[in-house]
Design a protein around this nucleic acid. Structure first.
Lengths: 228, 228
DNA sequence: GCAAATATAATAGTATTACTATCATAATAT
DNA sequence: ATATTATGATAGTAATACTATTATATTTGC
């Protein structure tokens, strides 16, 4: 699984960290416990000082890895989307039927996340919760245009693009493939959030998954029928 | 237009403010200039101290109207959604054809906001920008469940519900009316954001509006054809 | 195995934030 | 004209988001 790690690391923009957290055990601890702590207290209340205390380390040491918590969030999000992209490419590679391929993609993108044994220090289930609850805050800022130029959102954009291509492959006449793709990506996170906090605003629940809802939506929208 | 003002005020949860900002000229100034300032510097950098300086008033005086900036954001959002609900009800009232009604609703909900002369101290165009850029932050918090119980999101929820009802009226067989409605509401804000900052991730642009995209989407999804 | 380089920890310090408290003064209502 | 209420001015606190400096570990190269 080292190769996967490598490719994930490669995808993450180097400007997001001062020192690569994968290069030391302290760095890994920052990531591991940072994920747990952001989930526990929420991004607003999360501070490097508290994290330092939790991992028995010093605030100033954490600053040697990340400029600030915003960059850490961007790093975690990049990791998450890189991991998702890997799963997507792996699962859809070699599927020639475009409908089946899109169906598989929806499964990967809108399904409930399960733990991946490959990365011992990263809890993907909790990282997914962070993405659901905090990802929007990483781009809803005054610095978004500059940070976009720096390439901080590159992996996410590539993912949207991949989905968009799969949509076009199913229905080349459909006029809004990019909007549909970005809506599915963002909408999935939103539906998971609603399921948890505003159940009256969604039909997703214990039995109906976002995958079902969005797969149904996408195949109603495109002039195609899902297989099976 | 006093009656409209009354009904909008009525809709806003009283626990969101300490003293009703509509009840004094200082209160109105807080709202008016608060909107401009949040738009200018972004919600994170916005502080009551800066706002006090800007309106030639005192930080402590602003605290007599709002407990904190989070509550102010919730207040502004409630106002915005109350105003939107009013427009929706007004525009769709009396339309008996369910397809036409839904079409009209989509126009109201996904269209670019234009200024409303009725409220001199509130710039609706800028408030709409704030909702696009900051609304998510009002519920992506650790306090969301408690604040939801307090009714801080009631107007928004009612709006989603209204849209959901209109969807059911067009296609009572459709299995995900709530998810579709909440997705349209949230997705509209997102598509406006993408148009501005990530144009490659959307097909909305100068000529294609979110209204067009979402109207097309909704009528492809429901087994119905839009009129006209 | 030791020196040099590097990483981490400890401590201190700064400007700003997000408030709370108190008191003074201005405006308004009776 | 007085009492009430609203606003302003000032001060103070704990926490945040850092930066800087110095000390102490740890690793690495020879």
């Amino acid at each position: 699984m080292d190769r996967l790690m490598q490719s994930l690391k490669m995808g993450i923009n180097e400007k997001l960290y001062v020192k690569d957290p994968e290069s030391s055990s302290l760095g890994k601890k920052i990531i591991e416990q940072g994920i747990l702590m952001i989930d526990e207290v929420g991004f607003e209340s999360f501070t490097f000082k508290k994290l330092g205390t939790k991992i028995g380390s010093n605030e100033s040491s954490i600053y040697r890895y990340f400029e600030n918590k915003h960059k850490l969030l961007l790093y975690l999000a990049s990791w998450y989307w890189g991991w998702t992209e890997y799963k997507l490419v792996f699962a859809t590679h070699g599927i020639s039927d475009s409908v089946e391929k899109l169906q598989k993609a929806m499964e990967i993108l809108a399904q409930t996340v399960e733990e991946d044994e490959s990365f011992t220090h990263i809890n993907e289930v909790i990282l997914n919760k962070i993405v659901i609850n905090e990802y929007s805050k990483s781009y809803l800022t005054k610095e978004v245009d500059n940070e976009n130029k720096q390439g901080y959102f590159a992996i996410y954009k590539r993912l949207v693009d991949r989905l968009s291509e799969m949509i076009i492959a199913v229905d080349s006449e459909y006029p809004y493939p990019s909007s549909l793709a970005s809506m599915v990506m963002e909408g999935t996170l939103h539906q998971f959030f609603l399921k948890e906090h505003f159940p009256a605003l969604t039909n997703c629940n214990e039995t109906v998954t976002p995958t079902e809802y969005f797969t149904d939506l996408i195949f109603r929208t495109l002039k195609a029928k899902p297989n099976g």
